[in-house]
Structures are given as structure tokens and as C-alpha cells.
Design a protein around this nucleic acid. Structure first.
Lengths: 253, 253
DNA sequence: TTGATTGAAAGTGTCGACAGTTTTATCCGT
DNA sequence: ACGGATAAAACTGTCGACACTTTCAATCAA
């Protein structure tokens, strides 16, 4: 694991961005909600300048979006967005796993094993998701490609945000998700410990794709490897889905 | 091809960022060069505020980097960086090709064919590289995943910047690169036209990996699929390379 | 009541300014 | 001549202000 290279320049903007990121991911700030700079400036007791920079940082992470008028809103999430996020995760993390497999150490194996142990003890829900994501982050960093990690961070926050809202809609998390997910993690660990880059990439991709089917089954219809089934779909039309219900409709404006 | 969703809010910052991006990619601004906000503000005839935002936009694209003191410099390029950039390209573009294969149309085929024709006529060098990148961009956009395209843009500028400096060091571009590259493009097009997602992903990855060996042979030693050969390499040590010469030494500070 | 109009309120884009800090240049002792 | 202390210059982070634009709400006509 390499230490983060780019210590972000410590300033108010960064602190504000962190706080707002928490609020958006936690759902305290709702998708579509307007974010006015003067109001935020007052809330944080600063001027508009740092707030403005924080907005740019959040936009980079995909948590807010700028309108053509300049106004800023918490980004909305539709089903299409979740598909995009997961596809991006698969792209980045399968490469991350491939690279991690090359430089994998026994210490890394022990770290993952401890994480899996904690995952088994954690209650299903937000707590488990946090451990889950932390493990994926660890593997990404093991890959040693700082740019890849940085790109991944952009998707990570969006994924966490989506998770929150999925959880809030599916009152009861699929009870078997945790067990299922842990099984996937064990498979991934195996390929990493065996230092098999190509297998690691493939297993990681499959694991992520499988996971999202538990979280949001209806989003899996447009997933990459299922893509060959939904042929000739044109942009805009996401194609038929396995399940009719669309939980993400709740987020769209 | 879907139209770009996020019309960037048109403001001075965006214009300045575009101009500076050109200057950095073209090499007019050299790697490691300091970028002071007051000087840039005067050059563009604006205040520091838009310049500051432009800097953030450039940092997002990896063309400049902030020091802990807050100072901004044109990002330096070492061999390690080129490897990272190419690895990221492979991750994003293989997924992009996979997605593009699903929604590929005959019109897309014609577009690519026209591009390839132009590539064959273009003189090897910067002109060819521009056509090359434009084609890759087209395929990425065909994938329909806007987030993936956005992540790709971050790497694209860095890649173009690297290309410029590689060209300036290798006075004569490998004469066969163009022919070789066009052959790769034809293979990619074939998988897309046949709508074979997995093949498209694989062929695209191979094509990018092959290309970089022409541009910077010594960087290929640490490439993903060659990874299984360079086992147990620890961070910091990039492992043995096929060629001893390191053109990127020239960029490191 | 409904719908268009108009004026007020709020928000964004940009600017100039200032304090604190880093960098650079000068000066002094050796 | 050289290295370190010191002063000057330059730069960043942040602030408050202003013009222009968008949004909202009250008003008025139909």
C-alpha cells in the first residue's frame, strides 16, 4: 500500500467539501436539493470563496451537478446512474485487482482476512457496506496506480450515496447479501493471494456485478456481461429489466 | 453517440482552463513550471478568481499539481506516470468498447471507417495522434456511459501531454507505428461491428498496450499483462524493462 | 379562478483588497 | 569567496462588494 501522494492543500474548501460529502452521502441533503453559496457560506461561517471551491470538488466527485445557470444541486440518482456507477467500478476495480495481484504480499492477505472477519461479525446494513467499501479501497491502493485510485474515488462517493438511498428504500437489506458478498470477497482474496492477475480481474468484475444484483436487482439488466442479451438498445432506452419495479424512480425529478 | 450532458457553465474559468490546457499539452508550458495566479490573471486580463478555478479544473485533469504550500506547477511526467496513464486507459477503454459493442450501429461503423481512411492519409506524428485519439473518444462515447467518458477525459489530456513530450524526444516517430496502429483499429472495429462485447474489450486492451510499446517501449515492462512476468515487484521499483533507455528521465525534476 | 406581468429578492460571476506565509534577494560575518 | 541571517518581494487563502441574471411572489387583467 502506498501512501496518498497528493496531500490536498489543507484549506477551508476541503473541510467544507468533506462535511458536505458526508451530508450528501448520509442523505441529510436530498438529491435535487439546491445548494446556494450564500446560505452555505453562512452555515459554515466563511465567505463564498471556499464554498465555491468546495462545490467544484464535489462536482468532481459526482455528488452535485451544476446547472447551465450556475446553480448547484445535489445530484439526482436514477437507475441509469447506478448502472453507470457500477460499470465504472467494474472497469476500475478489475484493473485495480489485476495490478494488486502482481505486488500482493502476505501482509495484504492478513489485512483482507481481518476485514472479512469483521464483515462476518458486522450487522447487515450500513455498517457492513462500510467494511465492504473499505476492503475494495484497500485492494485498489495495493494496485499502486495512484491515478486509478483517484478515478476510483470519484465513483466511490457516488456509489456510497446510491447505497444509502437504496438502503432507505429497501427497509430490510437482503439478509443473505452479507454471506453472499463475503463469499465473493474470499474468491477475490484467493486470486490475489495466488498472484493471478487475470483471474483477479475477472473474479473482481464478477463479484461487483453480482453484488449490485442484490442491492438493486432491476439495475442488472443493463449490466456489461448481460449486455449481449440486450442487443441493439439505443441510448435513452435502457432495455428490458429483469424486474419491473424501479426503486430509483423515487430519486428522479 | 449521446450528446454531452453537462454543458459546463460558461465562464472565464473554463476559457482560461482550455487555453492553458492547450499550452500544457503543446509543451509551451513545461513540466515543473510554476503557475502563479497573479501572473496568469494579468496575462488573461482577469482577476485571480477565474484563474483559481481554472487551476482546479486543470488539476482534475491531471495537467497541473498543487504543492502543499498551495503553489501550482505543471505536472511532471516520469516513466511511472506514463505507465499509470496507459493502465487507466486500458481499464476505461476496454469497458468502453465492451459497452459500445452492445449498441453499435452501421453508422458508427461508417464513422470509424472514415476515420481510419483519414489516419492512413495523415502524416505520422501529431496529426495522426489527433485522429487516433478522436477515434478512441468516439468509441468511448458510443458506450453511452457518461461517467466513464468523463473519467476518460481526465486521462486523455494527460496522455496527449505525454505524447507531445515523447514526440519531442523521439525526433522520428517510429515509421511503422501508423500502419501498425491502423491495423489495430481495424481489429477493434471488427469486434464492434460484430457486436462482440467481450472480444471488443480484449482487443481494445491489447491495441492500447501495443501502441504504447511503439511510443515508449521501455514503459511496457510494467504493463498489466506483462505483470505476471515481473512478479513480486515492490512499489518504487518498477522492475526490469525491455530497453535500458528512459526517455522520461528528461521530465523528472 | 387563471394566467401573464412586473417588481423585489436571491444567487452567481467577477473583482480588488488584506493578512499571513513562502520564496527570493540582500547583506553580513567569517 | 561562502554560508547563514535578514529584509523585501511575491504568492496564497480568504474576505466583502458590486453588477448582472435568474427566480420567486405579488399584482393585475381576462
Amino acid at each position: 500500500m502506498t501512501k496518498n501522494r497528493s496531500e490536498p492543500r489543507r484549506n477551508l474548501a476541503h473541510d467544507i467539501a468533506s462535511q458536505m460529502r458526508r451530508d450528501i452521502i448520509s442523505g441529510a441533503l436530498k438529491p435535487g436539493e439546491a445548494l446556494a453559496e450564500p446560505a452555505l457560506a453562512e452555515r459554515f461561517g466563511v465567505s463564498r470563496a471556499p464554498v465555491r471551491e468546495a462545490m467544484i470538488e464535489l462536482e468532481r466527485g459526482g455528488l452535485v451537478q451544476f446547472e447551465t445557470t450556475g446553480r448547484t444541486r445535489v445530484r439526482t440518482l436514477e437507475e441509469k446512474d447506478v448502472v453507470e456507477i457500477v460499470e465504472a467500478r467494474i472497469a476500475l476495480e478489475s484493473m485495480g485487482a489485476r495490478l494488486a495481484a502482481v505486488r500482493w504480499t502476505d501482509e495484504d492477505t492478513r489485512w483482507i482476512e481481518r476485514s472479512i472477519t469483521a464483515q462476518e461479525k458486522a450487522a447487515a446494513g450500513v455498517k457492513f457496506s462500510a467494511l465492504d467499501i473499505a476492503m475494495h479501497e484497500y485492494i485498489m491502493k495495493c494496485g499502486g496506480n495512484e491515478r486509478l485510485v483517484m478515478l476510483w474515488q470519484c465513483v466511490r462517493w457516488q456509489f456510497e450515496m446510491a447505497l444509502t438511498h437504496i438502503h432507505s428504500l429497501q427497509q430490510n437489506m437482503a439478509p443473505d447479501l452479507r454471506r453472499f458478498s463475503v463469499t465473493g470477497h474470499r474468491k477475490v482474496l484467493q486470486t490475489l493471494a495466488d498472484r493471478q492477475p487475470e483471474m483477479a480481474a475477472k473474479v473482481m468484475a464478477q463479484h461487483i456485478k453480482d453484488s449490485i444484483e442484490w442491492y438493486a436487482p432491476q439495475a442488472s439488466g443493463a449490466m456489461p456481461t448481460a449486455a449481449s442479451r440486450a442487443r441493439n438498445g439505443r441510448p435513452g432506452k435502457t432495455g428490458g429489466h429483469a424486474m419491473p419495479v424501479n426503486v430509483f424512480k423515487a430519486f428522479s425529478k
